[in-house]
Design a protein around this nucleic acid. Structure first.
Length: 839
RNA sequence: GCGGGCGUGGCGGAAUUGGUAGACGCACCAGAUUUAGGUUCUGGCAUCGCAAGGUGUGGGGGUUCGAGUCCCUUCGCCCGCACCA
């Protein structure tokens, strides 16, 4: 049995990967009659190298995919590339390569890396979003939404980098400067394409309720992002005008009698108009705009206001006039860009009122009902009884809200309104490496959709990156086309789509990819929704909200009968690693340092080093582990096993040398077990029980994505097998532990399956059946407590009667010693669990 | 500030509806095999104590026959959002 001394992954990995590939083992059959399982991990951006985080992500998905195959499912487990985006253009500018060539080379490298890890992926469905046979269909979908009125164009303020001559996303603006150029970002107005995600705000919010297999955290983040609030929109009219005035949105119409001022945003049209002949106001507005936008800035920013000298009538009492301020804390892009200030019951308003010596009137009381004065500098935002408010007096907050809204609607000065924080999705990007927006601008006809027959609008490859800006803008011929409507010379739209559009439907294209249309409805509906989606929590809002919206939008226009794309979502933790620094704080890689006791030194220089925090792997901190290197060293199975061990999958996993070595040893241990089958006969009842409990337990743990627990149970079974004497049961246990491990360590499992004479591939084998009779222990160990403290344990037949249990417990010497002759007041007996004697 | 999560051995972590805390792994210690071992095997490993026994799930309090688990309070760490009217 010398073959079983050592498992050699360098031979086995490649051998089995080739066999799976040749047999097309993981190609999903659209026509299968089996129950389906669609397992998907968020597809990677082809940056050039696979990151260890990818390995963890795809290993989890792979275990589920392989397990689902074993339990009789037709599994769809595809892989593709989120291939458009800025890094390719940055590489083009920095290295002089073409974004397309750079991206496609990266994809080739990363595909090779992924294949070495042995994932059960249907590579026949591989796609890259940067290829016309993907983005052309995306253009068709965009136009379908356009024709349905879900796409529109409007002027919008954007972050403009004047050096790179491009728009930056909010995340790309750091301290007011472009992340790449370092130039101060300008606010610029540009015509942008928008998708009407706000049309679906209520539906997207309501849909969260049914996503019970999503993490609460992600649902809550989306809920907050959509930001629904209900209140009153009403007008504060200018005195003497014919109902001209300032519209205000409030969630607290119940506090209207506590109003003492109206404040408008610096960008509010009324402020803008006044500023044109009031230099002081113009200066104040400029000051407001400069205000920082970082968290710390906002925290410490003082409430500032500018009294416009205007006043407005209180809607509930037109003889009561309120001053109008321009205030730095009012935002133009939420609500109406104007608020009424009720200082007693809103902290910002109170800060503002104290600073500018405005009235502070209490209108909600939680105790004393008479005093209208409001002391102190802490606003009261809680519940209570309305006071000092005429006809509202005595009502609760909720009653008063409803009453004021009803009165406003009856008298015509306001309406109850639901407000969302969510705004429409601006998808225009002034970039080359993205999906061209399939629109043609004609001076006569306006924006005209590209006719279907002319799709895809293909990105030209002959572009240069030697000067900043969008190369599509300065391409000599590409943008020059005839108007599809009137035939006169016209221009193509040179903006491209946000890459989040690309990732908003790739899961549909995976399920069905005909050449002549985005997807075949019937086939896509067979697979969708994705049964298990796995990815990083950093996509909790953007990608996951956009994909939910896009799917709903397609549903809305009748293209697909699916509303929620991902039935179950799992967000995995990061892979972390120890960091090291030298005396100057320079980062050191783990290979550069050595340890003696608790002292770390730099190997080359002998200088002192410090072991720092355990952090997410990043190049800048030099704590990266390259998947290729570790697969070279330990083989794919040990790496996969490590990715699943110890840490619960939603938490961070710390990479460690000793950890991976332990995994390597276990892989070898499993292999040695395979060599230990014998021709011994005979049953080993205890081992049979252990085996069947493991089969059931591992299945339950994989179903719950508790891979660390599944692995603990496999270790446990391995320990039991090693201790058991040879028997038929032991042979069966060995065969079963290989089946249980197959989703995690598939190469070793195939090799073992072959050695054990298993039929076909273990990749096609069925999950072992559980004998329910063996799950039930015939004997149970009962805890015996005296006054809640454990004093003894007794082993008895399962299901023993309460009286017998009590008698056995009382017969224990240890128990009698603890009772020490005291009077027994009560005995609690929980069958098969414990006896508690109360004295 | 608002919202959410987490605190269990030296470390990662287990622990159905409240019912024997510390499964499993890593590290460490002792022994055996080996020319040797960073191999393999056996045993040990919360803590105080010679023992009997006591104490232990961040701290304090409560409910209960019984609390890691439920409630109140407090401390610490992490994440998300943020002048949202």
């Amino acid at each position: 049995m010398s073959d079983f001394e050592r498992f050699n992954p360098h031979v086995a990995d490649a051998r089995w990967q080739k066999i799976w590939d040749e047999r097309q083992s993981f190609v999903a059959d659209d026509a299968s009659a089996k129950p389906r399982a669609y397992v998907l991990e968020m597809f990677p951006y082809p940056s050039g190298r696979i990151h260890i985080g990818h390995v963890r992500n795809y290993t989890m998905g792979d275990v589920i995919a392989r397990y689902k195959r074993m339990t009789g499912h037709e599994v769809l487990h595809p892989m593709g590339w989120d291939a458009f985006g800025m890094p390719a253009e940055n590489a083009a500018m920095e290295k002089g390569v073409h974004p397309g060539g750079w991206t496609r080379d990266n994809i080739a490298n990363m595909r090779t890396q992924l294949k070495r890890i042995g994932f059960a992926i249907d590579w026949s469905r591989e796609l890259a979003t940067c290829e016309p046979d993907y983005y052309g269909h995306e253009q068709a979908l965009f136009l379908a939404l356009y024709k349905a009125g879900l796409v529109y164009r409007k002027e919008s303020a954007v972050n403009w980098d004047p050096v790179d001559m491009t728009v930056l996303a909010n995340e790309q603006v750091i301290d007011g400067k472009g992340w790449r150029s370092g130039a101060p970002v300008e606010r610029r107005k540009l015509s942008q394409w928008f998708l009407k995600i706000t049309d679906f705000a209520e539906d997207l919010l309501a849909g969260l309720g049914a996503l019970d297999q999503w993490p609460d955290k992600v649902r809550l983040m989306q809920e907050n992002w959509i930001g629904k609030s209900q209140g009153l929109k009403c007008r504060f009219a200018f005195p003497g005008s014919n109902r001209e005035g300032i519209d205000v949105f409030t969630t607290r119409p119940d506090t209207m009698f506590g109003a003492s001022f109206v404040a408008i945003a610096a960008d509010h049209p009324v402020a803008q108009k006044l500023a044109s002949n009031a230099p002081e106001l113009a200066a104040f507005i400029e000051e407001c705009r400069k205000g920082g936008t970082t968290a710390a800035d906002i925290e410490t920013a003082e409430k500032m206001g500018f009294n416009t000298g205007l006043s407005v009538e209180h809607p509930l009492d037109p003889s009561w006039h309120l001053p109008v301020y321009v205030a730095n804390f009012v935002l133009m892009d939420y609500g109406t860009g104007a608020v009424f200030g009720c200082p007693a019951h809103d902290q910002r308003d109170l800060d503002f009122a104290r600073k500018y010596h405005l009235n502070v009137t209490r209108v909600v009381a939680d105790g004393d009902l008479t005093d209208s004065a409001f002391a102190g500098n802490v606003a009261y935002a809680g519940p209570g009884q309305i006071v000092n408010s005429h006809f509202l007096n005595g009502m609760t907050v909720d009653q008063a809200k409803a009453d004021v809204i009803a009165k406003a609607e009856a008298d015509g000065w306001g309406v109850g309104q639901t407000q969302y924080r969510l705004r429409d999705w601006g998808v225009s990007r002034q970039r080359y490496w993205g999906t061209p927006i399939p629109i043609i601008h004609c001076d006569t006809c306006g924006a005209v959709p590209v006719p279907d027959a002319q799709l895809p609008v293909v990105l030209p490859e002959d572009v240069s990156f030697d000067i900043p800006g969008n190369p599509l803008d300065r391409h000599p011929t590409w943008s020059k086309v005839d108007c599809p409507s009137c035939g006169k010379p016209a221009r193509r739209e040179t903006d491209t789509l946000d890459t989040f559009v690309d990732s908003s439907w790739y899961f549909i294209r995976f399920a069905s990819q005909p050449a002549n249309k985005p997807f075949d409805r019937e086939t896509a509906e067979k697979w969708l929704p994705v049964d298990q989606y796995i990815g990083g929590v950093e996509h909790a809002i953007l990608h996951l909200l956009y994909a939910r919206f896009w799917t709903r939008a397609l549903n809305h226009i009748g293209m697909i009968d699916v509303k929620e794309p991902f039935a179950s979502l799992f967000t995995q933790g990061m892979v972390t690693h120890q960091t090291y620094q030298d005396a100057d704080g320079k980062w050191l890689s783990p290979e550069e340092v050595k340890r003696e006791g608790d002292i770390w030194t730099i190997i080359d220089s002998g200088a002192a080093a410090t072991a720092g925090r355990i952090e997410k792997m990043s190049k800048s901190k030099k704590n990266v582990v390259d998947p290729d290197d570790i697969v070279d060293q330990y083989g794919a199975d040990a790496v996969r096993w490590f990715m699943l061990s110890d840490s619960p999958p939603e938490r961070d996993l710390e990479w460690s040398e000793s950890g991976i070595e332990g995994c390597w040893r276990f892989v070898q241990r499993l292999w040695r077990l395979v060599g230990q089958t014998s021709d011994a006969a005979g049953k080993d009842e205890a081992l049979n029980r252990k085996t069947h409990q493991a089969i059931a337990g591992v299945a339950a743990d994989i179903d719950a994505l508790a891979f660390n627990k599944a692995i603990a149970k496999i270790y446990d079974l391995a320990n039991a097998i090693e201790k058991a004497p040879p028997s038929e049961s032991r042979n069966a246990a060995i065969r079963n532990i290989i089946l249980l491990s197959a989703p995690m360590v598939p190469h070793l499992a195939e090799q073992a399956w072959e050695a054990l004479g298993g039929e076909g591939l273990i990749a096609d084998a069925a999950w072992p059946e559980v004998d329910p009779a063996l799950l039930v222990e015939s004997e149970v160990t009962i805890a015996v407590q005296v006054k809640g403290k454990l004093r003894d344990t007794i082993t008895v037949a399962k299901g023993l009667a309460q009286d017998d249990l009590q008698a056995l417990a009382l017969a224990s010497q240890k128990v009698q010693h603890a009772i020490d002759g005291a009077e027994i007041r009560k005995v609690i007996v929980v069958p098969d669990r414990l006896v508690n004697i109360v004295i």
